[in-house]
Computed example of a mutant assay.
Amino acid sequence: MKTPIAALAVLWLAACTPATPDPAASTPEATPAGSVADAVPAAPASVAEVVDDPLAVNQAIDEVLGDHVRYEAVIRQLQRAVAANDTAAVAALVNYPFVTVRDGESLRVADAEAFVREYDRIMTPPIAEAIKRQKYSQLMVNYKGVMFGNGEAWVNGICKDDACKDVDVRVVALQPTS
């Protein structure tokens, strides 16, 4: 029998499947080798219900992704770094190589140094606002990671071993949603 939280996680999973493919969304080639996700997540078509419960978020992360403590630490660090406009701190949280789309073109960022140089192109005001405004208690969780806003930012575990038992929690997507 499913617990209410497990049932909610299934609802979140269903709500996060795009209704139609988004041609502007990142492709599987954009996902680093060894990523927990199959591809960089696209924004959900719709979310049926916003839950405002940090314990439910923690439980969903634990059940779907792994240790919520590690995810929460990265999420909080990302929010603080973006709020402080600390480009180096944000860059340190990103998984490389990092690929996103800007102005209809693929933007590939090899490392943290390149991320800092391209920061203003990558961290647009709408993406920064979505990260800063996101309440932890209202994060959406699915097998592709933890979503901020309407999909402007995603955090997920990057496998460090073949069994994916050891992961680094990193920013895997920063993308415009409109």
Rank of each mutant, 00 (worst) to 15 (best):
A91F: 15
H68C: 11
D86E: 07
F98H: 04
A128V: 08
V146F: 07
Q59S: 08
R80K: 11
M147Q: 14
I61Q: 03
Q134C: 00
P97M: 00
I131S: 08
A153M: 10
A130Y: 10
R80W: 12
Y119T: 08
R133S: 08
V57Y: 06
V82A: 11
E113C: 00
A81E: 02
T87M: 15
A110Y: 04
V101A: 07
V94F: 12
N58F: 06
R102E: 10
P126H: 14
D67W: 02
A60L: 03
R70H: 15
M123C: 04
V64E: 07
R133K: 15
Y143R: 13
V94A: 06
I127N: 02
R102A: 06
I75L: 13
K132P: 03
A114V: 03
E113V: 01
Q77V: 12
T124F: 06
V99Y: 01
G66V: 02
G145M: 13
G66M: 00
A88L: 09
A89T: 03
D111I: 01
R117F: 10
G104C: 14
Y136H: 04
A114Y: 05
R108F: 02
F148P: 07
V99C: 06
Q138I: 09
D86I: 02
A92C: 00
P97K: 00
L139V: 00
A110N: 06
R121H: 09
V64A: 03
V99G: 04
A130S: 09
N58P: 00
I61V: 13
E63G: 02
Q138F: 11
E152C: 08
K132Q: 09
N150T: 12
N85C: 00
E129H: 05
A130G: 05
A114C: 02
L65T: 00
V90P: 06
V57H: 04
R121A: 09
V90A: 07
K132A: 08
N142R: 05
R76H: 12
V57Q: 04
V146Y: 06
V109Y: 08
G145K: 09
P125I: 04
A114P: 11
P126C: 08
A84I: 10
R133N: 10
R80V: 12
A128T: 09
V146Q: 07
K132T: 06
E72A: 10
R117N: 01
A81G: 02
S137H: 12
P125W: 10
N156T: 13
A92G: 09
L93T: 03
A88Y: 09
E113D: 14
A88F: 12
Y96N: 01
D120M: 12
A73G: 07
K135R: 12
L107D: 05
E72L: 13
Y71P: 03
G66S: 05
E113Y: 05
V74K: 04
A84C: 09
L107E: 01
N150M: 13
T124C: 02
N95K: 11
N95A: 15
N85F: 01
D120H: 14
A73L: 13
I131N: 11
L65H: 00
L139D: 01
V90C: 07
P125A: 05
E152D: 13
F98N: 02
V141H: 04
H68N: 14
S106L: 15
G151K: 07
N150S: 10
A153W: 13
F98I: 07
Q79C: 01
E63I: 00
A110E: 05
T87H: 14
V141M: 08
L78A: 04
